[in-house]
Design a protein around this nucleic acid. Structure first.
Lengths: 133, 133
DNA sequence: TGCTTCGTACGATACCCATCGTAGTAAGCC
DNA sequence: GGCTTACTACGATGGGTATCGTACGAAGCA
């Protein structure tokens, strides 16, 4: 018998050790050691999530979730950002009522040198090849 | 039950795909224009498929499906190879009773320069970081 | 103290997909 | 012709996941 597939989220569903703090709005992020290539690739394989990552990549600093004009509901948006965060692609924190998201560029570059850049380049190439947008 | 018409349905399923064929046993491959980055990333986001691709990458030429010692059934193996082929990551053709698979390295490099290499490098780095295998 | 903005949790739904076993085709060999 | 090897199609199954609406919470503002 084989473990079915890989467990998408590395064992940390949505209630990790953060519970010690008193109502501090903190979000669980995987440590670098917990980031898995398969999870990163899976996170990037969704068109909407790839689009989010591309926009984050050209931004100077973190962007709020509401910055993105996505053709999906707010709940689904939350879902996609959570997939990106739990796979280790982005980091998020609260600033007032807003939730800011930014690429974990340095972590990813250290773990998987060149990967993020080539994915971003490939996405740009494909966008140019198709009708762009 | 011996004389059940099986190949007729098969032929109908495959024939509309044109492709000036010399043999009836030809496999459908996406053209370069049809290859999508999201599909490639999705294909590579499965641990078993990534493992297949890694082994193909170090092989000199195409390998038969049975070369791989995968911890899954033969039907599931067929499924994974089909995902890889239909996403444009590998090409396959029949040689006798065997089905040979090889990376579409040049196509991928032309479409997405550097992507394949960085994914392979990332996979190797992660394998080294973890217990390897 | 309300009201607004922004995001979350929850439950539901429908589709996707990894897996299997079984039964079948296709080529090669004795 | 039978036997073997290699792979496939089909149908089923169970878990994954993208989507939604609704109700809720937390922060900021009037």
């Amino acid at each position: 018998m084989r473990s079915r597939r890989y467990s998408t989220m590395n064992a940390m569903k949505w209630s990790p050790a953060v519970t010690a703090a008193t109502s501090t709005r903190e979000l669980a992020h995987p440590s670098c050691a917990e980031i898995r290539l398969e999870g990163v690739l899976h996170a990037l394989s969704d068109p909407l999530r790839l689009r989010i990552v591309r926009e984050l990549a050209v931004a100077d600093d973190a962007l709020s979730c509401s910055y993105f004009d996505l053709p999906i509901s707010k709940s689904t948006t939350t879902h996609h950002f959570r997939v990106l965060r739990e796979s280790g692609v982005i980091e998020q924190n609260y600033r007032g009522t807003a939730k800011m998201s930014g690429l974990r560029r340095e972590d990813l570059d250290r773990l998987f040198p060149g990967l993020l850049d080539s994915v971003l380049g490939a996405a740009a190439a494909q966008a140019a090849r198709l009708g762009d947008r």
